[in-house]
Amino acid sequence: MIALTDVHKSFGSKQVLRGVDLSVARGESLVIIGGSGTGKSVLLKCILGLVRHDAGTITLEGQDVTEGDRDAFLARFGMLFQGGALFDSLTVWQNVAFRLLRGSLKRPKAEAREIAIEKLRRVGLTPDVADLYPAELSGGMQKRVGLARAIAAEPDVIFFDEPTTGLDPIMAGVINALIREIVVEMGATAMTITHDMSSVRAIADRVAMIHDGVVKWEGPVAEMDSAPNPYLRQFISGSAEGPIEAVR
């Protein structure tokens, strides 16, 4: 469904992506792992067009993502940002229903609110949080609201950028389980970026490891623990010894 071929991206003299080849099939959940600053977030932003790649091609169902109707393209995506990226000036339900209150997917206000409350319920939040502002919520609740916003318009593809960062292990487990449930239930294609190996095991069908701007290993999650790839082994074990420099 999504295919990246020889994708390059530099910021000034810093080469972040040096030829990434990756593909995700429809309905598949791909988790991308790798150290900080290895280009994982940039990769997602290149797919969405938030950052323009320098070379290579990115396609969604065979169509180059840089061509065609951008609104129609973006309408197929939902994204959960690392920090939630909720709009401070809007209430929780207005955040969740943002896409349903404007643009091509616009619905009447009452209907949009109803859908938002239903999505909040789906991520385990009660309707009484609907009229609160994001600043009044805990980190875990903000992630859930972000998740509800990502799925509100029932997208075909959902991106999760470090969904469990900053959460305690129990809340991280809850979010991982929710992501897995929702992806399966919606039949959506998912791409997740994480450092958290418990997230990888809970969410992934397939895993890709990025280091130095290229994919060093890619395969089914079931084969991850037995794969001999030294980069992957070092990352999973969290060891300072290995091909990945501890001080980068």
Binding site: L48, G78, Q82, G83, A85
Partner: peptide, 16 residues
Amino acid sequence: TMKVTEQIDALTTLST
């Protein structure tokens, strides 16, 4: 602040 906290990127992904 919206830019730093990725709210601007979020707007774009929400087709706005």
